[in-house]
Each structure stands twice: as C-alpha cells, then as structure tokens.
Amino acid sequence: MLESFEGIVLFMRPHREKDALVKIFTQTHGTKMFFVKGLQALNHPLKQHCIPMSQHEYIGTIHSTGLSFIREAQTLDIHRKIQMDPILQAHAAYLCQLVDASIEDNQPDSILYQFLAKGLQMINRSDEARPFQIAAEVQLLHRFGLAIDWDRCVFCHNHEGPMDFSMQQQGILCERHFNEDPFRLQLRPQAIAVVKLLSKTAFEQIGNIKLSEPTYQDIRRLMHEIYRDMVGIHLKSETYLEEIYKFMRITNDFPFRES
C-alpha cells in the first residue's frame, strides 16, 4: 500500500549492476532500507532524491521487515553547501552514521529525527562544523547508555576550577582529585569547558564557536576514548574526518583560532 512519508537519506549503496540500496531515516517509521531499481542510471528520476544527507517527502511502500520501496519523491532540502564542501560533507556523513548507530532499525523516533534534521541544517549554514560534531557526540551518549555528568567532579561534586576526565571513574575530576586517577586523560581545561557547554546547547544556539587546534585535538581524543572503550564503536566516517584534518594540519591549509 502506497503512503507518504518524510525522510533523510543516510547512505546509498550500489546493488548488483544498476540497482541501489538506500537507507533513509523516516520521520514516522524510523530507519528503513529501500531498494531502488536502476538508480545507478544517470537519468533515473529518483537519483536526486537519494543523495546522502538530503531530506525529501516520499511516496512509497513501507514494509515492517525486509526492503521497502520508493515510487516518487519531492525535495525538501538538498543541503547544497554540504554537497559542495568536502569538509562539511564529511562532518554531515559522520553525524548521519552516529545517529544511525544510536537507534535500532524500524523504530520510530521523532525526537532523534528532528535532532538529525536540525544538525544537518546548521552544518549546511556554517563554515565551521566541528562544534556541531562535538555537540552531537556528547548529546547522543545517553542513547548508548552513558549518563556522564560534565558539570561536577565525581568525588566531591565541585563544579569550579580546572577539570579533567577519568576513564576509570567515567566522569569529571576536579583539580583536588586529579590524584585519584594517575591515568586521567590530562586534557586542557578549555577542552572540558567546551564539552560541558556543548553538552547542553541546542544546535541552533551554538553560534560562532571557534576552536583552537590543541583544544579540538584534546576533545577528539576524549570522544575517541569514550566511544571506543565505553560505547564500543568506531565509525568509518570518523576515521575519514581524522584523515582530512591530519592532512590539513600537515599542509597548514586552514586557520585555527584560540578558544
């Protein structure tokens, strides 16, 4: 039975010689895999509606299990700046993969859908996507079962002064309790301050945050440790992002400002 539904394309994967599998986060049915016959043809009528990180209104057949099908579509937002900018595109792809990893297929979740939609909108409007990446990583942790308090020391609940992160304690240490974990991450205080801020800031309220290279690298190390050791995932799109920024550091191809 045909029905209308809104969705965001997470990824497209070639299937056989000319067909494709397209994973779409639908607003009403959760994440679903769609089979699109002949999509790899240059003039396929649905081609522009299956571009990753774009948002559309679809008409098709939704199945509770197995593959679903698209009959026609109308574009809501192609996110053109993301499509044209390889760095923004890499950040948007990582956001899509992270959201996809945080939800089971076929589970409707309008809150998470709006979270992804707003994230893509804000990345598309920005020139600096890293704060949105950090906000997404921190704010999605609860969906992986982690409830980290970024405001207070795990021992004394102090919320002032320099802070660091302890993987052993799975939380924040204030300066008075640094000696409780000799293997604490030894992050710059600015890194913890940025994570604390972005842990409770909506995408549309982030504004024009500028991150220094050292601060961003500390946050990357923190998020990598948490997602690898506490969540248990490492996404390919994160590795690609790391390679992009590594190349840019080597070539000094972009300015960093102190935060």
Score class of each variant (00 low, 15 high):
residue 180 E to I: 00
residue 237 S to Y: 01
residue 81 K to F: 01
residue 140 L to D: 02
residue 64 S to D: 08
residue 132 F to H: 15
residue 12 M to A: 14
residue 229 D to L: 14
residue 200 K to T: 14
residue 183 F to C: 04
residue 79 H to P: 07
residue 231 V to M: 11
residue 243 E to D: 10
residue 36 V to A: 01
residue 104 E to H: 10
residue 76 L to H: 07
residue 196 K to C: 04
residue 9 V to L: 09
residue 187 L to D: 06
residue 171 G to L: 00
residue 32 K to S: 05
residue 103 I to S: 07
residue 245 Y to K: 12
residue 222 L to Q: 00
residue 129 A to F: 02
residue 90 A to Q: 05
residue 87 I to Y: 07
residue 77 D to P: 04
residue 123 I to V: 14
residue 255 P to K: 13
residue 150 W to A: 01
residue 210 K to M: 11
residue 51 I to E: 06
residue 174 C to E: 00
residue 89 Q to V: 05
residue 131 P to Q: 03
residue 34 F to G: 08
residue 1 M to E: 07
residue 132 F to C: 05
residue 57 E to D: 14
residue 191 A to D: 04
residue 63 H to S: 07
residue 161 G to N: 11
residue 87 I to R: 12
residue 166 S to D: 04
residue 108 P to Q: 10
residue 10 L to F: 00
residue 178 F to R: 14
residue 153 C to Y: 10
residue 197 L to R: 15
residue 131 P to C: 03
residue 158 N to P: 03
residue 206 I to K: 11
residue 92 A to Y: 00
residue 49 H to N: 12
residue 154 V to W: 02
residue 200 K to Y: 06
residue 9 V to E: 04
residue 88 L to I: 05
residue 37 K to A: 06
residue 2 L to I: 13
residue 94 Y to L: 12
residue 39 L to G: 03
residue 38 G to I: 03
residue 79 H to I: 12
residue 61 T to R: 09
residue 50 C to S: 11
residue 228 R to M: 10
residue 190 Q to T: 13
residue 192 I to Q: 03
residue 71 R to W: 03
residue 112 L to P: 03
residue 79 H to K: 14
residue 142 H to N: 13
residue 207 G to A: 15
residue 79 H to N: 15
residue 137 E to C: 04
residue 218 D to F: 02
residue 23 K to V: 04
residue 200 K to M: 10
residue 185 L to A: 05
residue 66 G to T: 02
residue 73 A to Y: 01
residue 20 A to K: 09
residue 234 H to W: 10
residue 75 T to C: 14
residue 249 R to N: 13
residue 158 N to E: 08
residue 87 I to E: 05
residue 35 F to N: 07
residue 96 C to Q: 03
residue 153 C to F: 09
residue 176 R to M: 03
residue 203 F to H: 12
residue 152 R to G: 02
residue 240 Y to I: 12
residue 231 V to A: 10
residue 63 H to R: 15
residue 224 H to W: 09
residue 139 Q to G: 03
residue 197 L to A: 13
residue 26 T to Q: 07
residue 207 G to K: 15
residue 218 D to P: 02
residue 107 Q to W: 01
residue 119 G to T: 07
residue 250 I to T: 13
residue 58 Y to W: 12
